[in-house]
Design a protein around this nucleic acid. Structure first.
Ligand SMILES: [Mn+2]
Ligand SMILES: [Mn+2]
Ligand SMILES: [Zn+2]
Ligand SMILES: [Zn+2]
Lengths: 139, 139
DNA sequence: AGCAAATATGCAACTAAGTTGCAAATAATT
DNA sequence: AATTATTTGCAACTTAGTTGCATATTTGCT
């Protein structure tokens, strides 16, 4: 889809990053996925062309640095990343992990109030919520 | 302190676990710390006596399984664990990571309402909140 | 206390996510 | 097209956490 290409390229342009084939491909993959992906999942979805894992990690790092991407959660020692374009400045939607099947989902419909700082000098900038329980498939 | 020894032994007894020297020591370390520790930190606080890391990981696993311990957060690829005795069934206190110095703290004074499940068939059992911002030391 | 069964521990070898340095390739700028 | 700034691929490395198995410890029972 040329649509996605344009959108991905635009996102990189706004962030003032080199628009390389690798970066455009990875942003497209994340746009299509609409959910957090690990390095391995990204590599897989980039197709048969060679995408070195180092390159993927470095691109993720860059995208996180400019705020286009967030680390959503860590599952089985692997970080999972997603585009931040549906998150507010102060928090993303919660993520939910099923304790039965181990799957993780984005719960876009839920939001919690921001925590209030307790006079102790902590300045809270962002809040992440992770939920556990049973997914629809596991009753 | 014999106090801690007794408390640790009691906790293991209630959980129906063998009261081994290693387990008692590790539960005592976690009681004293009052905050999440990594395997390496636990090993260090167990003192000069030899505590194999495999043993520590297996004890943590056991303690998590019976609910005495929670994984509080992952920092620099290392899981950090703490006793669950100050947590409710549905959520612990939030943890806070300073984006400047990287330190993580327990915020015992803060609690958020539980998220409500959104008619989508997800059953929410537990909620974890992680906060980011600036700690008192970093203004 | 002494014994047998159940369980925990130590060791060595392994797994796999993520990192680092550097040379070659590609993108932006002129 | 040439120059410069930046990215990519490769190989080698780091390190949290795991696995299998032999040995040691705990427990319940006599
Ligand atoms: Mn998400
Ligand atoms: Mn805590
Ligand atoms: Zn499930
Ligand atoms: Zn700080």
């Amino acid at each position: 889809m040329a649509d996605l290409d344009i959108k991905a390229a635009e996102m990189l342009k706004v962030a003032n990053l080199y628009r390389t084939k690798h970066r455009v491909t990875i942003v497209k993959v994340l746009l299509k996925a609409g959910r957090p992906l690990s390095q391995e999942q990204i590599a897989h979805r980039c197709g048969k062309k060679h995408f070195d894992k180092v390159t993927i990690y470095r691109i993720i790092e860059t995208l996180v640095k400019v705020g286009l991407v967030h680390k959503a959660y860590v599952d089985k020692r692997a970080s999972h990343f997603e585009l931040a374009h549906h998150c507010t400045d102060r928090q993303c939607h919660p993520h939910f992990t099923c304790t039965s099947c181990g799957s993780t989902h984005c719960l876009m419909e839920i939001s919690l109030p921001m925590a209030e700082s307790p006079h102790k000098g902590f300045i809270i900038k962002r809040q992440k919520v992770h939920l556990e329980g049973l997914c629809p498939d596991c009753v």
